[in-house]
């Protein structure tokens, strides 16, 4: 018992530095954001609104747009990153000349700074002078140049494509590691049962990779939901505020329009949504794990 107590104390001693930093630098500011969210705050004035503030938020047409955009953005990016990640992991698992080299290359988009990726994609998307439209036209896929970032209906999707490119290597490396963890015996057993490649994939590979996929999906979901740089650099939320997502709109409200109260409310909703989502997600995946 005494030994245990000593053990406890040393445990607290070990985690103390990070705990203090976390409380001071993360949870205290987060708490302040909750407080600010009940106020109408600008550079020059502060007014208490109480719950009325949130009523106003939910009536704000921008709120539903941002929520819709954020969901579209996150779901599409995560889905395609997962798909592309799995696909590229399967390719990279094979042996072919240049495999190691390609493995090194694949990670580059994920490693490059987001603002730079955003600027590069802006060049690619230039409607008349960009290479993407040029190649699409040369290949005869489109006959009119697409307006990518220039149209309110397309801008968000154009950034989504860039975001898929930027982030999919993370899924690739996770799934590649996952693939290498699948016990070979399982494949051998499946082969004996006469399984072909497709059924091996669905009956051996995927089930064995379940934990990796579950975690990767959650991580990419959270990161993507809060990813700021690409939208900020590529469209700035435009045209006509059509491509804003939570983090960019929060930043815009706070540091371009100085509406700190509004910014805080959006931030609180962002946080609560992700919290509830993650809880449900973890719950569900545990449950299905038990039943499986």
């Amino acid at each position: 018992m005494l030994h245990n107590k000593k053990e406890w104390i040393s445990g607290y001693f070990f985690i103390l530095p990070s705990l203090i930093l976390l409380i001071v630098l993360v949870f205290y500011p987060l708490f302040m954001t909750f407080i600010y969210s009940f106020y109408d705050m600008s550079l020059v004035s502060t007014r208490y609104l109480g719950w009325e503030a949130y009523q106003k938020l939910f009536q704000n047409p921008m709120f539903s747009l941002i929520f819709k955009n954020s969901l579209t953005w996150t779901i599409l990016v995560v889905f395609f990153q997962c798909l592309l990640g799995l696909g590229s992991a399967l390719v990279l698992k094979q042996t072919f000349i240049g495999n190691t080299f390609l493995r090194g290359l694949v990670i580059l988009p994920w490693v490059m700074p987001g603002v730079i990726a955003g600027m590069a994609w802006r060049l690619i998307y230039h409607p008349q002078l960009g290479l993407l439209n040029h190649y699409l036209q040369v290949l005869g896929i489109v006959d009119q140049p697409l307006t990518w970032l220039s149209s309110p209906t397309m801008a968000l999707y154009a950034v989504i494509l860039a975001a898929i490119w930027k982030g999919f290597p993370f899924s690739t490396i996770m799934y590649l590691a996952g693939l290498q963890g699948v016990p070979l015996e399982l494949y051998e057993a499946a082969e004996i049962d006469g399984a072909n490649e497709t059924s091996k994939f669905f009956h051996v590979t995927l089930p064995s990779m379940r934990p990796v996929i579950i975690v990767t999906l959650l991580l990419t979901f959270i990161w993507t939901f809060n990813y700021f740089e690409l939208v900020y650099v590529m469209t700035g939320g435009g045209p006509a505020e059509s491509s804003h997502i939570f983090p960019t709109y929060i930043y815009d409200l706070a540091f371009k329009r100085f509406r700190f109260g509004d910014a805080s409310r959006f931030a609180v909703v962002d946080f609560l949504f992700l919290l509830i989502f993650s809880l449900f997600y973890v719950r569900l995946s545990f449950k299905s794990e038990e039943s499986a």
């Binding site: 002078l129 220039s150 801008a155």
Partner: peptide, 21 residues
């Protein structure tokens, strides 16, 4: 004028001019 003016910046338009479009 070429399509896409809504989100085209003055800079993009300028590039179209200097590119001879």
């Amino acid at each position: 004028n070429p399509p896409g003016e809504v989100a085209r910046t003055e800079e993009d338009s300028f590039q179209l001019f200097t590119a001879g479009k």
